[in-house]
Design a protein around this nucleic acid. Structure first.
Lengths: 334, 334
DNA sequence: GCCTTGAATGTAAGCGTTTTAAAAATTCTC
DNA sequence: GAGAATTTTTAAAACGCTTACATTCAAGGC
């Protein structure tokens, strides 16, 4: 049996409340007893039972994280940031991989509710109304990361997608490209899909290149789909010399396709990605990309949730973090 | 306030024990009341408090996972497998990223202890004696994944590293290569470092190529280090035409280096990796590699831990899973 | 020396469940 | 229709901890 506070009390020959005080308000107990208690705690490897404490404090000091795809390096980075923040703030972290499956999200929310997590960071892209209802129904505070909601009023941390996409495309244009394609996220099951497309369009319009706005194909978060999307795009528009991909993984998929078709990157086609994954500098060619502060996004999301939990509100409800253009090898002047 | 069992009881006009029985032994309560209770539960969105239950059952239905590096795709795959198994087996999962930092591991073990996780999967490579002591000290059952321990008697699931490495090198030899190098894990801070080197040596000896056994450089889990290691290796042994990398990430680092040096892969140098990450088929060139059943490793580890938790022991203490050679584009006949 | 004061310590209630044992209600038997 | 047998329900104890309140103790003031 795991030792309880009683065992410690017995060994130190004090009452259990004294033991409790040694842990929670050490200065209120006289040195002689205190050291006896501490000694007993160490000898028994005593750890107070989090259930019993939780029952009293009504807090678990645990945060939940709903993540769509843990095998996506983007989210892996978010997790790392969030976990580091959790360490700093004294929380444990419960991570759930939703695979973008709504049922699974809903069931994880139940789990979180049952385990009494103090709050949740929701990173599963689009905030489904069902999830929102459930979350507010069980009164679990939550924030969104790399997502936001127009429908509901929920704090969020993300990058300015429209502007970032605009910067990416503008960069390609400044390189002298006039035939520009894009591989984007589906608009109906992603939140950054539409704004990134808008950024693409704005840059194009500004440069008088609106004839490109239809050179877009959509992919579904993964490499393989991007490969396929690139195939469709270049079949329809072989004249394209520059490609904006809304994710580095898409950029890799597209480059992989081009490689298989013996089209040189950046020799014949320039490609710019989005995210700046840890992998992106390792790819061949190294990816030019729009960097998101991935780690900081996760870190900040945890801080924001903490703010919400401790003060009941959040100063900046929808926070935008800075993106940055990183020029590497996958792009070149026309 | 979150509704408690009392609120449900009041609303359904029964005693709290009846409510409890509706949830735990529904057939013992008469239909009329049962439906009243169920209705009340739904109306209130009642979820039993896991703290109170945990206090009674002395179980959290939560497993802990100690992972060295969540941004490593290998471990991301392990997590996914483990999480799916946890869903099947009715556990929640608490994931902690240790960054291979011993202090951090130790502190996470304390957290796990406090939160009363039922068991732990330890994936942080080498099982430090301190961790072993602590884990056994607080009597938390645990299993090792993609690791094992000679020093201590702990259940584990992994691949046969020696044989896998042997198969990789043998493949290179069969391709006609005679000048073969290796980029390995440091022997002192990894568990698969030594057996993979042994596999390398065995294949070499068997083919009468023992002059290669010293063509080894070590790297520290990450791309950049492998890049550097490749630099050292090819500076010392420019004659090498085939390279065995003990991780796909190393293979990418090495290929990246070779690319920067304008050495063609597989034209001039064949490279074989290890792991078969999701990324490996996306690389350019697509990686020839030894595939580990990553997802299954995680899945199996959770099952094994469950077995340990429910039966108190484990039928096959050290389990080896099958690896498989996958030939893609980074290797070629000499 | 007695009373007051303040600090140190202990006792017991309570957090939200489950579960045992006892009580109540229902059904069955004759 | 009374009593036994059975089913259904409830009260209360327990899980391990914190904390309000009560008690004890030592020191200080008179």
């Amino acid at each position: 049996m795991k030792p309880t506070i009683r065992d410690v009390a017995k060994m130190a020959e004090v009452s259990i409340s004294t033991v409790s005080r040694v842990m929670n308000a050490p200065h209120t107990v006289v040195e002689s007893k205190r050291s006896r208690v501490i000694e007993a705690i160490e000898k028994l490897q005593y750890q107070p039972n989090a259930f019993a404490r939780g029952l009293i404090y009504k807090k678990s000091n645990t945060l939940g994280l709903l993540i769509p795809d843990i095998e996506n390096l983007y989210f892996a980075g978010v997790i790392r940031g969030m976990q580091d923040a959790c360490i700093k703030l004294g929380y444990s972290l419960m991570i759930c991989n939703t695979d973008r499956d709504k049922e699974r999200m809903l069931s994880y929310i139940d789990t979180f509710h049952e385990k009494q997590v103090d709050g949740i960071v929701y990173a599963s892209d689009v905030l489904y109304p069902e999830c929102y209802e459930k979350l507010t129904g069980c009164r679990i505070p939550f924030v969104l990361v790399s997502s936001h909601s127009e429908e509901f009023d929920v704090p969020s941390v993300e990058v300015d997608d429209e502007r970032a996409a605009y910067d990416a495309v503008k960069f390609l244009i400044e390189l002298g490209h006039t035939e520009i394609g894009m591989i984007g996220f589906n608009h109906d099951n992603s939140v950054s899909g539409p704004p990134r497309y808008e950024g693409f369009v704005r840059a194009l319009n500004e440069a008088g290149l609106e004839h490109n706005v239809e050179k877009v194909r959509y992919a579904n978060h993964r490499f393989e789909h991007a490969y396929q999307a690139a195939h469709e795009l270049f079949t329809d528009y072989p004249q394209v010399t520059a490609l904006f991909c809304v994710a580095d993984e898409f950029a890799m998929g597209a480059i992989s396709y081009l490689k298989d078709r013996n089209i040189l990157v950046p020799g014949q086609v320039s490609v710019i990605g989005f995210d700046n994954l840890r992998m992106s500098g390792m790819y061949i060619p190294k990816l030019t990309t729009i960097a998101q502060p991935i780690y900081q996004l996760g870190y900040r999301a945890a801080e924001k949730l903490h703010e919400l939990l401790t003060t009941g509100k959040v100063v900046v409800p929808t926070e935008k973090m800075e993106h940055k253009l990183i020029v590497r090898e996958s792009s070149r002047e026309r």
